[in-house]
């Protein structure tokens, strides 16, 4: 059985478990059912403009007594449902772990992206932009730089972000945070540079691109260290 099939099967098991738990969790105790019924009848009569019949108000259980009564009636199917949820979840965890290594995002939807390589490409592109600013009037380049930022975002950063589940699984949570924190910061600074380009504010565009560059460098160092 493939990992994807195991994942589907485990989802089904969890769904059955939740269904069992929720169905028996929803069951009302006899006294609660009487109280709910009395409430519905009086609301209905009020809505229909009928005079409410003088029925005795049903006794309402104390909350703790209600819990005990419910548990004594639903414990077995509810517990069975819980077991299915845990069983399915464990299967799903194993299958997802295997699938992440195969497809990148654990859902079979994305191609694998190399973290260090992608960051290197982003940094080189930013380098190119800066080199051009040495020879050309910076403020004249804003419209072109805006397009280049959009290209970095869609072609490099988005696929990288889509792969974050695989990267997280490979690196572990702490290293993932150490590397993805600066990536997200660099992404935000790029977005700011984009906004500055639209607002035709060249100084802010420069500053933001520099900040983005520093953030991506920091992420790349982390990625290279991890690989080595």
């Amino acid at each position: 059985m493939s990992s994807a099939q195991i994942q589907n099967l485990s989802s089904l098991i969890v769904a059955i478990g939740v269904g069992l738990c929720a169905t028996f969790g929803a069951q009302l105790t006899p006294k609660t059912l009487d109280a709910v019924t009395a409430d519905l009848v009086s609301t209905h009569q009020l809505k229909e403009g009928q005079t409410s019949e003088s029925r005795p108000t049903p006794e309402v259980e104390e909350p703790s007594a209600r819990v005990m009564t419910w548990w004594s009636r639903a414990a077995l199917p509810f517990g069975g449902g819980l077991l299915l949820i845990f069983l399915g979840s464990m299967m799903a965890r194993r299958a997802k772990h295997a699938l992440i290594h195969l497809t990148g995002d654990g859902e079979g939807g994305g191609a694998e992206v190399n973290l260090a390589h992608t960051l290197g490409v982003v940094i080189r592109t930013l380098d190119e932009i800066f080199k051009r600013t040495q020879s050309e009037e910076w403020s004249q380049l804003l419209a072109e730089i805006k397009i280049e930022i959009e290209e970095i975002q869609t072609s490099h950063l988005e696929p990288l972000i889509e792969n974050r589940e695989r990267i997280k699984a490979e690196l572990g949570m702490e290293l993932f945070i150490d590397i993805f924190g600066p990536i997200a910061q660099g992404e935000r600074k790029l977005n700011r540079a984009w906004a500055a380009c639209v607002d035709k504010h060249s100084n802010e565009a420069v500053t933001s691109l520099q900040s983005a560059y520093v953030s991506f460098q920091s992420a790349l160092q982390g990625a290279v260290q991890t690989e080595s």
Partner: peptide, 22 residues
């Protein structure tokens, strides 16, 4: 004394157990 504590507790157990799913 009308508080659906049984529903809150059973729901909370379901929610907690779903934390195991990835």
């Amino acid at each position: 004394g009308d508080a659906p504590l049984d529903k809150y507790i059973s729901g909370a157990i379901i929610g907690l157990s779903l934390g195991a799913f990835p």
